[in-house]
Amino acid sequence: MNIFRLTGDLSHLAAIIILLLKIWKTRSCAGISGKSQILFALVFTTRYLDLLTSFISLYNTTMKVIYIGCAYATVYLIYMKFKATYDGNHDSFRMEFLVVPVGGLACLVNHDFSFLEILWTFSIYLESVAILPQLFMISKTGEAETITTHYLFFLGLYRALYLFNWIWRFYFEGFFDMIAIVAGMVQTILYCDFFYLYVTKGQGISL
């Protein structure tokens, strides 16, 4: 564990909590892409199946349970509890255009052709593009609530911090995982446009 990975995980946790609280407190998921949240739930489910097979640390297990719990709670709030406030017309990105190519790539490019490893690779690739429906929705509506921009900021920051974590681990531990690094770079690059607007605008954003 290093400072970049710890702050990265905490930034990720902050993003997840911010979104969940925003929907819960305002009792509305206006401006939120339910499809991105479904993809994130899928990312956590396919990545954290190792909860059933291996124990790494209390921190690791606790965070995985929290991530999965919050992801499904968010999907539940969007599609069940506050379904009336879900803006389905603007949340029109075709998820299959992401899941199918990512699934194929995970079968072609991976560290080991085993069930859990393929699923892990799928989740890494999927996470790098899972935010696209949300960014697409904001570009269609032309605006985003301030709280949503904070959610996106911390979500984008988390993987950027992981890039520093991988530099740290390569330098100090000789560890590197090309699949995670390349996907992490793609994921962070997708936020660059948003980061620029977030920093220059400060308040509500129009992509």
Partner: peptide, 10 residues
């Protein structure tokens, strides 16, 4: 390279 069994990152 990715040598230990499984992945230790979230």
């Amino acid at each position: 390279n990715q040598d230990e069994v499984g992945h230790d990152e979230l």
